[in-house]
Design a binder for these strands. Sequence first.
DNA 1: TAGTGGTCTAGACCACGAC
DNA 2: TCGTGGTCTAGACCACTAT
Lengths: 240, 240
Amino acid sequence: MDQTAFAYRPLYVQVRDQLVRRLIDGEWQPGQHIPSEIELAREIGVSQGTIRKALDAMTAENLLIRRQGRGTFVARPEESRILFQFFRLVPDDGKPRFPDSAILDRRPAAATAAEVDSLGLSAGDRVWRVERVRTLDGAPLLVETLTLPDARVPGFGDLEAIPNNVYGLYSERWGITIGRASERLKAIAATETDAAALGCAPGTPLLAVTRIALDLENKPVELRVSRCLTQAVHYSSELG
Amino acid sequence: MDQTAFAYRPLYVQVRDQLVRRLIDGEWQPGQHIPSEIELAREIGVSQGTIRKALDAMTAENLLIRRQGRGTFVARPEESRILFQFFRLVPDDGKPRFPDSAILDRRPAAATAAEVDSLGLSAGDRVWRVERVRTLDGAPLLVETLTLPDARVPGFGDLEAIPNNVYGLYSERWGITIGRASERLKAIAATETDAAALGCAPGTPLLAVTRIALDLENKPVELRVSRCLTQAVHYSSELG
DNA sequence: TAGTGGTCTAGACCACGAC
DNA sequence: TCGTGGTCTAGACCACTAT
């Protein structure tokens, strides 16, 4: 393996990139057992220690799960993992729980300027927009708008139902793995529409969370704007 | 070094703990050059590889800074680092900048129940409370209340001024290093008092950020409640 | 018992910074 | 040129899991 390329990249980084590529290309499916360190070392032609550094890096990125004595597995977008990795709204007095969802609307549209910008589209590109309300213990928690580029999710309009865990859907239906996301939070006042959906008064302060979800190639997949009631719930963030 | 203790801890973790202890005890000051890997390996009696794993772990915790060719240094609570590590409010259209501060009030008090709970105090313990308003380019950005246990910051009342970067103050004055913090975010309506300080209308939606800052031993040092105007600014959070 | 990942070691060479 | 941290290798042993 070329270790003296013009733009120098450590060998273990090159190995990591090659393995990520094989994940993207679907050679290994979510949940699947991948070859052991020794097999990969033989196959790729580097030492076991270098393979280990690459696998450790991918484990840190939540792409793999390693279990001593069992092997290395491709991470799956299960609810429990999503809950831990991507869902930061926590009841003030308890453990994180996954809210239920009810779809309010699903329709195709032309991307707005903001969507073009966030999702890396071109003017006039088609998108799907989904509006849903999510509840915790029956009480409305948030309303959110999901925007998906039509080109990324062919056949989206034919789906009979949209599951609660849409990241699992993206993975199963289109082989798209959400690797990371960036969120922007603001405090806003509830509009008439939001207030009706949430059962609160117009003007109620809401936590607006704008999320861009990226796949393993860091290409944007989904834009999500959530408006959340935070009376009994907070957004949790760990620094450092 | 005992590697077969009852509660098994990897050698490199034991080394890390020992080195963190030496940081806490002040053997190495912020900014100082610590011994090289080879020296530490000789001194502690483990291999250079084990020292490296311990130092890498501490680097990942932002306790150390390593520079190829120069050496390993104790991280300093400089503005630029704090800005990156602990300050998540970013102008919508630009790079993070450190806001200016103006102290509104500073007074001793008995800890409230919430403060007792957050800071691990006992009922009746004394605290210092600081109220300040912070501005970005002259425009009010947020008002915040800092609460410090009196026992942790002897002589706090004698300070002539309270600097903008209080984490730097904690480090210089009392040898306290803030290692991490956890934040809880909610959307609230501006009170009359907050509105007056921020120059907005009462009832304006504000982002309320409640932060507990912890030292290297994971003991709480400061409770901070910030109420932020988010018209031109957002709270940035990276997931994954 | 066999196979996996986790830890630890020892030594080589490379890239970077200071002199 | 020297000393630093960064990478890479090879091999040993340990802890965990499945059979």
